[in-house]
């Protein structure tokens, strides 16, 4: 096996996931989450390891991975800042927040900072419209974010 990148811990997690479903294919999304958590993105080698662990074709795994917006097939920042730009957030100033974050990070939505650390994304409804505008910084949701609050939020991520 050439170019194995997934650690023993990740592979044993994938084996556990495979056995948690009636059919191994169902473990694909959770397995890809596990692989991406370790590697940072789904490199061809990571895809190959997942495919082998679940007995799937690499092309199949790539096809599935490419469908979902939370999976990345190219390197991205380890930290992910997701700004909701859907209706309720849009109506409550999400554009200004996104603009401020773009300025501060020197990126456009969908890009990773020059130092490779932070990915900024404009995303669709995060289902927290009562807190609009909402920003998800890694796994933490921030409510009623102002442009000024966006600056503070960056401090917590850096």
């Amino acid at each position: 096996m050439s170019g194995r990148v997934l650690s023993d811990a990740t592979l044993s997690e994938i084996a556990r996931l495979r056995d948690a479903y009636p059919q191994a294919e169902s473990a694909l999304l959770p397995a890809l989450h596990a692989a991406q958590d370790q590697v940072g993105y789904l490199s061809p080698e990571a895809i190959a390891d997942v495919a082998e662990a679940l007995g799937l074709a690499e092309t199949e795994v790539t096809s599935v991975a490419s469908y979902y917006s939370m999976f990345f097939l190219t390197p991205v920042g380890r930290h992910k800042i997701r700004v909701c730009t859907n209706l309720s957030c849009y109506l409550n100033g999400a554009e200004e927040v996104l603009h401020r974050l773009c300025e501060r990070l020197g990126v456009s939505p969908g890009e990773t900072t020059a130092d490779g650390r932070i990915l900024l994304e404009a995303v669709e409804c995060l289902g927290a419209c009562e807190e609009a505008p909402v920003v998800l910084a890694d796994t933490t949701r921030h409510a009623r974010v102002t442009a000024a609050a966006a600056d503070d939020l960056l401090g917590g991520v850096r």
């Binding site: 059919q23 294919e25 959770p30 799937l56 599935v64 979902y68 917006s69 939370m70 999976f71 669709e124």
Partner: peptide, 27 residues
């Protein structure tokens, strides 16, 4: 009961797309 995490796709909220996704395919 098994908890299953999606991976970013509005379409997977549609019931048959959700089943496709739960079976490890594109939604």
């Amino acid at each position: 009961v098994t908890l299953h995490r999606g991976a970013g796709s509005y379409e997977c909220g549609e019931e048959t797309a959700l089943l496709e996704s739960l079976e490890g395919r594109r939604g």
